[in-house]
C-alpha cells in the first residue's frame, strides 16, 4: 500500500491519542491529500531521504572528516585528488575525503532547514494569526513591524546580527528565522482574515467560545495548509541563506555543512579544477531546496480540494 494510503487510513481510526488529536489529524490529512499527486510524492521522498541522511549520514561516513588521506603507494598527501575507488568523490585540498564530509555535512544542513523552517513557521504564524484575528491596533502594530522587516536587506542584516550574536552555527539559524518569517506572517494574516468571517467562527463566538479556543480549534486548523506551504518554503530558504552566510564567512566554518564545503573549495582556489569537491554539495543543496519548493507546490492540490467545496457553495448561493 502506498504511503498516502497508509496516512489516510490512520485518520478515521482511533489509533491512539496522538492521531486522534485535532491538529495532528488535520496535518496528516492535509499531507495525505498532497501526496496523492505523484510529483509531490516524489519530492517528498527525496526530502525524507535527505532527512534520513541527516540522521544516519555521519555513521555511514567511511573516514573521519579531518582525517588526512595519503596515497598508499607514495605516502604523499592526497591533495585535491580526483575520484578513485578508495575515495569515490575524491579528496579536498587538505586531503580530506569528500564523500565522508558530504555525509557528515547532511546533518547540519537538515538541522538548519528544520530549525530555520520551524522558526519561520512559528513566528510567521503567531504574528499572522494574532494580527488577523485580533485586528485593530494590534494588527496595525504587528503588520507595520512586518513591513519594516520586509525593508531589511537580508544578507547585510544577517552579517550585522551575527556580529552581535557571535559567529556560530545556531546563531546563524536564529538570524535566518528572525528575518524570514515576514512572508509567512503576511499571507497567514490574510488567510486568518478570510477564515474569521466564516459563519462557523461567528457561531462559536456566539456560543461563548473564548478567543484562544477559537484560534486553536477553528483558525489554526483552517490556515494549517498554508502553514505547511510556508514551512516547506522556509526550510528551503533557510538552507540557501545559511549556505550564503557560510560562503561569506559569517557562519561557523567548523561545522562541516554543505555550504562550508563550497566555501572551502572556493577559498582553496581549486574550485574549478577539483569539481568533485564543490559540485556534490552544491548539487545536494540545490536538490534539497528544489524538493522543499516542489513539495510546497503540492499545496495547490489542497487548494483545489477546497475549491471543490467552494464550487458547491457558489452554485448554492
Amino acid at each position: 500500500m502506498s504511503l498516502r494510503g497508509r496516512l489516510t487510513e490512520t485518520t478515521p481510526e482511533r489509533v491512539s491519542g496522538v492521531t486522534d488529536s485535532y491538529i495532528v489529524r488535520n496535518f496528516v490529512g492535509a499531507l495525505g491529500i498532497m501526496l496523492r499527486d505523484r510529483t509531490t510524492a516524489f519530492y517528498f521522498a527525496i526530502l525524507v531521504g535527505v532527512t534520513l541522511l541527516g540522521v544516519v549520514g555521519p555513521m555511514l561516513a567511511p573516514y573521519g572528516i579531518q582525517e588526512t588521506q595519503y596515497n598508499a603507494a607514495t605516502g604523499q598527501v592526497l591533495q585535491a585528488a580526483g575520484p578513485s575507488v578508495a575515495h569515490p568523490l575524491g579528496t579536498t585540498f587538505a586531503g580530506y575525503d569528500v564523500l565522508s564530509r558530504l555525509l557528515v555535512g547532511a546533518r547540519p544542513t537538515v538541522i538548519t532547514g528544520l530549525l530555520g523552517g520551524a522558526m519561520i513557521l512559528s513566528i510567521g504564524t503567531a504574528v499572522g494569526v494574532t494580527a488577523g484575528y485580533v485586528g485593530g491596533r494590534t494588527e496595525t502594530v504587528l503588520m507595520r513591524f512586518t513591513d519594516f522587516v520586509y525593508g531589511v536587506p537580508l544578507i547585510p542584516f544577517g552579517i550585522v546580527l551575527i556580529t552581535f550574536l557571535g559567529v556560530g552555527f545556531l546563531s546563524s539559524i536564529v538570524v535566518i528565522g528572525l528575518i524570514l518569517w515576514r512572508g509567512g506572517a503576511r499571507v497567514i494574516r490574510a488567510q486568518t482574515l478570510q477564515v474569521k468571517q466564516y459563519p462557523f467562527v461567528r457561531v462559536a463566538k456566539a456560543t461563548g467560545a473564548s478567543t484562544p479556543r477559537i484560534i486553536v480549534k477553528h483558525i489554526l486548523p483552517n490556515v494549517a495548509p498554508m502553514a505547511i506551504f510556508f514551512l516547506s518554503l522556509g526550510v528551503g530558504y533557510a538552507i540557501v541563506l545559511q549556505a550564503s552566510l557560510t560562503f561569506l564567512g559569517v557562519a561557523d566554518p567548523f561545522t562541516p555543512s554543505w555550504g562550508v564545503m563550497i566555501r572551502n573549495a572556493f577559498r582553496s582556489g581549486y574550485m574549478s579544477e577539483a569539481w568533485w569537491w564543490s559540485i556534490p554539495p552544491g548539487f545536494l543543496i540545490g536538490l534539497t531546496v528544489l524538493s522543499t519548493f516542489m513539495f510546497g507546490r503540492g499545496y495547490e492540490d489542497l487548494v483545489n480540494e477546497d475549491a471543490e467545496s467552494a464550487e458547491t457553495e457558489a452554485v448554492a448561493a
Binding site: P199, F200, R202, K217, A316
Partner: peptide, 29 residues
C-alpha cells in the same frame, strides 16, 4: 441564545467532524 446561520456550507468548520462540531458548545459550557 443560539444562532443558526443562513449559509449551511460555511456554518460548520470543515476540519471538524459532526461529533466534534456538536460537542463544542457542550465543552465550552
Amino acid at each position: 441564545v443560539q444562532v443558526i446561520f443562513q449559509d449551511p456550507f460555511n456554518s460548520l468548520d470543515p476540519k471538524m467532524t459532526v461529533a466534534e462540531s456538536l460537542k463544542e458548545p457542550l465543552k465550552i459550557h
